[in-house]
Amino acid sequence: MTASTVGFVLGTRPEIIKLAPVIQECHRRGIDTHVIHTGQHYSDSLDAVFFRQLGLSPPDTNLEVGSDDHGAQTGAMLAGIEAELHDVEPAVVFVQGDTNSTLAGALAGSKMDIDVAHVEAGLRSFDDDMPEETNRVIIDHISDHLFPPTEETAALLRNEGIPEDRITVTGNTIVDAVQTYDDRAASESQILSELGVTEGQFDLLTAHRAETVDDRDAFERILSGVSRASAQADREVIYPIHPRAEDRLEEFGIAVPDRVRLVEPLGFFDFLRLESTADVVFTDSGGVQEETSILGTPCVTLRYGTERPETAFVGANCVAGREPSGIVAAAAQMRGKAGDWTTPFGDGNAAVQILDAIPKLAVGEAVTATE
Results as ranks from 00 to 15, higher is better:
Cys318Leu: 14
Asp258Lys: 09
Ser4Gln: 08
Ile174Gln: 11
Leu262Tyr: 12
Ile23Cys: 00
Arg28Leu: 11
Ile17Trp: 03
Gln73Cys: 07
Arg335Asn: 14
Ile167Met: 01
His242Asp: 03
Asp98Glu: 03
Asp60Asn: 09
His118Gly: 00
Pro58Met: 09
Leu249Tyr: 00
Val328Ala: 05
Leu19Tyr: 12
Gln96Trp: 12
Lys18Ile: 06
Ser285Cys: 03
Asp215His: 03
Val22Glu: 01
Pro243Cys: 00
Phe94Ala: 04
Ala79Leu: 14
His208Ile: 03
Ala233Phe: 15
Arg303Gly: 05
Cys299Tyr: 11
Gln40Asp: 05
Asp144His: 06
Arg303Ile: 01
Glu211Arg: 01
Val288Tyr: 09
Ile139Lys: 02
Ile16Asp: 05
Asp234Pro: 02
Met77Pro: 08
His27Ser: 13
Arg248Thr: 02
Ser227Phe: 08
Thr297Trp: 14
Gly55Glu: 09
Ala210His: 00
Val260Asn: 06
Val35Phe: 05
Gln232Ile: 14
Thr173Asp: 01
Pro257Leu: 08
Ala83Cys: 13
Thr2Tyr: 14
Glu160Cys: 11
Asp60Ser: 01
Glu164Asp: 11
Arg28Tyr: 10
Leu355Trp: 12
Glu25Met: 09
Ala369Cys: 15
Gly196Met: 10
Gly326Phe: 10
Gly348Ser: 10
Gln73Val: 07
Leu262Thr: 13
Val237Glu: 07
Gln73Asn: 09
Val49Glu: 13
Pro243Phe: 03
Asp347Thr: 00
Thr5Leu: 12
Glu291Lys: 14
Gly287Cys: 02
Glu152Ile: 15
Tyr304Val: 14
Ile139Gln: 04
Ile238Pro: 00
Leu192Thr: 07
Asp340Cys: 11
Thr134His: 15
Ala106Ser: 04
Asn100Thr: 07
His41Thr: 05
Lys111Ala: 15
Glu211Pro: 04
His118Ala: 00
Val367Pro: 13
Ala312Ser: 14
Ala91Thr: 08
Val260Ser: 06
Thr292Gly: 05
Leu56Trp: 13
Thr370Gly: 13
Arg216His: 00
Ile238Ser: 04
Leu146Met: 02
Glu371Gly: 15
Arg308Phe: 04
Ala229Cys: 08
Pro265Gly: 02
Tyr304Ser: 15
His242Ala: 03
Phe282Lys: 05
Thr297Gly: 09
Thr61Pro: 07
Pro21His: 06
Leu223Arg: 07
Ala104Trp: 01
Gly97Gln: 01
Gly39Ala: 06
Arg228His: 13
Asp279Lys: 11
Glu211Gln: 06
Glu275Tyr: 07
Asp165Ala: 06
Ile16Ala: 06
Lys360Gly: 11
His242Met: 02
Val300Gln: 03
Arg248Lys: 01
Lys18His: 01
Arg248Phe: 02
Ser227Gln: 09
Gly321Met: 04
Arg136Asp: 03
Asp60Phe: 11
Thr150Asp: 01
Val237Ser: 09
Trp341Met: 03
Pro90Glu: 07
Leu54Gln: 07
Ile358Pro: 00
His208Val: 01
Ala332Tyr: 12
Met77Leu: 00
Leu63Asp: 14
Glu291Asn: 13
Ala48Ile: 09
Leu156Thr: 07
Val352Glu: 15
Gly75Asn: 03
Thr61Asp: 14
Ala76Lys: 15
Leu204Gly: 00
Asp183Asn: 13
Gln232Gly: 15
Ala72Arg: 14
Glu290Ala: 11
Asn135Ser: 06
Glu84Ile: 11
Met130Trp: 00
Leu295Met: 09
Thr292Pro: 05
Arg261Gln: 10
Ser67Gln: 03
Asp270Pro: 07
Lys111Phe: 15
Val95Pro: 02
Val288Thr: 09
Val352Gly: 12
